[in-house]
């Protein structure tokens, strides 16, 4: 396989979560002639691995952000070349994230937002106890993913209410609906008509990337 050495160095640097090492590996791969898209793809796959390592307690949030920072630097360096190859610049997919109205739990949703941002999504995190209409407004404003978290059996029903509001507004087919939170299951996601159920932040991110 071409660029085996560069691919390994890119992967190792990204998983080491050290920005200077990531930049050096990107510079080296670029100088060796590795296509910009291939470099970013390797970094993206490695970023997914970083997310899994975070969830397994092997890496911590500052590491994840450092890796994302390194990836961001690579995007800045290689972005123009990628845009030239593609013929036009491709905007990042926008995601609205929030914990639904009535529910003040925050941390799981925040971790998920961080993982999505690290994976290259433009994240609009509305916080927690978010009024239902605010999700709909963000979708109207261009978000193509709508992530709703609920940590209580009493608030998970709000996810369905928001899906119904998206349908009423004629927006349901324009957005990928993601649901998660402790009491939410794949069965419940199927029942309310969500597109993605995330058992964890990294699973949600992986499934969202698959939808791009």
């Amino acid at each position: 396989m071409a660029y085996d050495n560069e691919t390994k160095k890119l992967h190792d640097a990204l998983v080491s979560c050290k920005v200077p090492d990531i930049k050096a590996a990107v510079d080296e791969a670029h100088a060796a002639g590795m296509p910009a898209n291939d470099i970013i793809n390797v970094l993206g796959d490695s970023m997914s691995e970083v997310g899994v390592l975070f969830e397994r307690g092997k890496l911590f949030l500052p590491h994840v952000l450092a890796a994302a920072n390194g990836m961001k630097a690579a995007m800045e360096l290689l972005g123009p070349e990628m845009a030239a190859d593609a013929g036009e610049a491709k905007d990042a997919a926008a995601v609205v994230m929030g914990t639904v109205e009535g529910d003040v739990h925050d941390i799981g949703k925040s971790i998920c937002s961080t993982m999505l941002q690290c994976a290259g999504f433009e994240v609009h995190d509305l916080g927690r106890d978010v009024p239902k209409a605010n999700f709909v407004e963000e979708v109207k404003g261009g978000c193509t993913f709508c992530g709703m978290s609920a940590l209580m059996t009493t608030t998970m029903t709000v996810q369905k209410e928001i899906i119904d509001m998206l349908k009423d507004a004629g927006l349901r087919d324009k957005v990928c609906v993601m649901v998660g939170g402790a009491p939410v299951t794949q069965g419940y996601a199927d029942k309310i008509g969500a597109d993605i159920y995330g058992e964890s932040a990294s699973e949600t991110t992986r499934k969202a990337k698959d939808k791009l």
């Binding site: 949030l61 500052p62 952000l65 450092a66 920072n69 003040v104 739990h105 925050d106 941390i107 925040s110 971790i111 937002s113 961080t114 941002q117 994240v123 995190d125 916080g127």
Partner: peptide
């Protein structure tokens, strides 16, 4: 301890600060 972070408490929300790459401030 989530109750000690904004908007419920006086300290900035670490996860939000991290997303802005304000890692030291978050810590």
């Amino acid at each position: 301890m989530g109750l000690y972070y904004a908007p419920d408490g006086p300290y900035g929300n670490p996860a939000d600060l991290m997303r802005e790459f304000k890692i030291e401030e978050s810590m």
